[in-house]
Each structure stands twice: as C-alpha cells, then as structure tokens.
Nucleic acid binder design. Sequence first.
RNA 1: GGCGACGUGGCCAAGUGGUAAGGCAGGGGUCUGCAAAACCCCUAUCAGCGGUUCGAUUCCGCUCGUCGCCUCCA
Length: 479
Amino acid sequence: MLQIYNTLSGSKEPFEPLDPGEVKMYVCGPTVYDAAHVGHALSYIVFDVVRRYLEYRGYRVRHVQNFTDVDDKIINRAHQLGVPWDELSRRYAAEFLKDMEALNVKQADSYPRASETIPAIIEDISRLIECGHAYEVEGDVYFRVLSDPDYGKLSGRRLEEMNAGARVELDERKEHPMDFALWKAAKPGEPAWDSPWGQGRPGWHIECTSMSTRELGPQLDIHGGGNDLIFPHHENEIAQSEAVTGKQPFARYWMHNGWLTLNQQKMARSEGNVLSVPAIVEKYGADAFRWFVLSSHYTRPLSYSDKAMISAVKSVDRLVQAAAPRTPEEEAGDSVASRTALPEHAVIQLDSLRGEFEAAMDDDFNTSRALAVLVKLSKEVNRLRATGESDTEALALLRELAGVLGFTLAPQDGGRRSSGDGSDAAADVDAYIELLVAIRDELRAAKQWKLSDRVRDGLRELGVALEDTAEGTKWRVDR
RNA sequence: GGCGACGUGGCCAAGUGGUAAGGCAGGGGUCUGCAAAACCCCUAUCAGCGGUUCGAUUCCGCUCGUCGCCUCCA
C-alpha cells in the first residue's frame, strides 16, 4: 500500500483518498514574473511523478495547478519593463507551460489564475469577515490569526514564538503582528478590482483557497509545493480554507519537496544562481534532468553540478540504449509467437522486478530505488537479447515503468543529439553518414583496418559513434 | 533567538537494530580484426565522542560541520 509522508503529521501515512478511486491534487504554481528555472522544474517533475504513479495505481487524478499572476513582483517588474502587468504574466505563464512540455511534465487538468478568480476570492473574504475570522482596516482586509486555535499546526510554530522572534515591521493597524492580508487596497497605478472594501487586489494566500475549493471542492487529497511554502503560505491557506469551508482537514496529505541547491545555496531568483529550463534541456536532455531529480528522495535537498548531470546523462543513456535500439523491422517482427518463447525464469524475474518497483514507489515515492529497478531491467533486456531469448516482455516492462517515472526514452533526446528541428538538413546529414558507414563496411570486408578505423575515428570526433554488431554496423549521434 | 533538515566509498545517492541498493568514475574479464556497446566480477563500516543494547551506521544525548524556514520564493 502506498505510504506518503505528510508534513502535517510529520510521518508516513497510508494513502487513502477521500473518494475511493479519485485523487484531488493541488500543486502550488509559480508566480509568473520571470522565467522559470530548474529549481521550479524539480518541483514540478516531482509532482508529475506522484501523479503518474497514482494513475499507474489506478486512481483517477484531478490535478490543478495555479498561476499567481497578481503580485507585487509582477507589478514592479512590469513597471520596470514598461509593459502591462497582465501582458507580462501571460508571457511567463505561456513560457512556463512550454518549459513543462519540454520536460515531459504532464499537463494539469486546469491552470486557474488569481486574476480570473476575483469574484470567488471576494466571496471567500466576505465570508471570513462574517464569521469573525477577518477584519477590514482602511480598505485592507486581514485574517485574524487568533481566531484560529490551530494556527501553526503545519509548520510546527506557535504564535507566541513567532511573535517573539518576528522581524516583520509592525503594522499598528493589525490586531496581531501575524495577521496576514487577504485583500490589499489599491495604490495608484496598480491593478485593482472593485470590492466591498473599495478598489484593491487579493493577497497572496487567499487565491489558492478560492481556486482549489472552486476547482476541487472543500477538501483536497494531496496538496503539494516547495518546502519553503510551508510557512507562511500553506499555513495561511489551511487557516483560511478551514475557516471558510468549516471542514477539516483542508488537505489530507501535505507534500513538500526539498530545494535544488547550486554551490551550496538554494537556487532562487533572488540569489541570482539560476539555470533556465531550456538551457538544461538543450545541454543534457529532459530525461537526464529527470534522472538527476529522481536519483534522490524528493524531500531532500539536491545539489546541482555538471558532474552530477553528466552522470545522469550516462545513466539515462543505458536505459535509452536498452529500450530503443531496435530497428522498425525487429519491432514489427517480434510477434506473439516469440513472446511465448520467453523462459519461465525470465517471467518470474520480470514479475519480481515490477514488484520491486512498486514497493519502492509505495514507500513515499522512493524514486532512487525505483531507478535501480530500471537499471536491473535494462540489464535483463540486454541479457535476454544477448542469449537470443525474446526480450519483448522485458522491453515492454522497461518502457512501461520508465513511463511511470516520466522518461521519454527518446533516442533523439531533447535536441541534445539531433540537429534539433528535424529539418531536411538533418536528413541529408544522415545520408552522408550512411554512405560513410557503407564504405567502411566494404573496407572492413577487405580487411583494410587502417582505413576503416580512420573512418570510425573521424566520425567519432564529429560526434557519431559506430558499433559493429552481428546485425551490421549501427551508428548514433552522441554528443 | 525560535523551528526544522542533513553529514554514508573518488563523486552522486538508497537503506536497515545484527556487519551497507543503485548510478558515475576506477580496476579485472568475456565478446570484437581492433574498438564501441553489452554482460560478468572487484572497490566503504556509515562526521566525532559518549549512552541504551547480546549487538547501532540505524535509538538517545552532546560536539563539530553544512543548509533551510521564521520577509517574497518550487
């Protein structure tokens, strides 16, 4: 049975969704004021794998991810660049979706935006005021943290402690220093909407409450996000949501991923140590980055390095080689007849590998162990192939399980190896390579080793690797 | 100051109260005209010091070190 580490309880718990067979999953999306970086990518890959595994386990997953598109940073950035805030946010949201596609992250079922949820937000805030959980001051509305006896339960903080150590500058108008804004009165030049409290815009936390409850109902199964969102964002979300809906818990399982660090520091826009998603996909490929991310447990911090990426590239190459080296003829020719030739011990072996994979993933998504299973599986494929036994079933299993982790196993991975656009130019190059390979084969037949080796070495330097196999010479673009 | 995470072989990284998965790198082999690829084999006592225990890397305490959150952040 699947166990998930729940931040709320601080322990692993058996996973049981509210409605059997269906999982309501909400993942906090980015604030779209700038390009996403691989730190974001890590988070969304993690939750992509969570989703894929739940689907593999037979759940119907409803996956919602928001865009925060009304926010101080967006407004400031838009002012700097001299563009309308909504144009800026739309641009980066579109870019984000492209990045996710490049990373083979499945699309969410819905991508609500704060700016399109204003009526629901106003409705929720009004309700909070009615219930005594919020109050208005000069056009601002604040959540009254003292009205929530459980406040702090997610992050394990107590109001008194935070009060004591708070470095936030005191706002005399607030009843309690930790009270947080639900609605902010508009300043000149800022985006604003009409509300019962005058012109203004929503605070950061309330949008997630309004969006998630409208999209998925009052209670979620899984709520995910980066580890830094635990406080204050998720803490505040819980307070608001449970106050609005009157239902507990707001989310049954809180999942938080660890940071991606670079040079011992968290990768963050504010630190300036970010790497863009397209740059990584271009340089190493989406599968390699995914391997890197999945090589450690999602709750742990992970440190980025070129060395680690190169290691990941090589590891993924093993899978790709095992999973996709067959010619179309081999693919088509391997029929049901040959499948029955699979020896019994191999069938048992495959079953146990699937079992190992599931056991690993059931244990709070232990992808590191799951990857080890994929390695074993590709060895098995190669072994069966080498002994002339049918590899069909092993290959199918390898592809299936790799797919559960979101690997494409595409030989022409992410533009790293191909000339990129699949243009005629690339096809022409293929023809030249084919020609050289054919000529080299003739040289080899004539035992002209020196010359044939020269062709091979020359191609090698141009990034084309040759392999002489029983079925003839194979070539692939490599780096 | 408060809360929390982490410290496992050259690098990355799982894991367990009874002497430690996997990947990369390295070494040896099989195969090959030679290679490549593939396959097989080999390489650690788990930061330090105490304690609990028949036995701890795994539990507890302390020390050292690294990092995160407490303000916007995946």
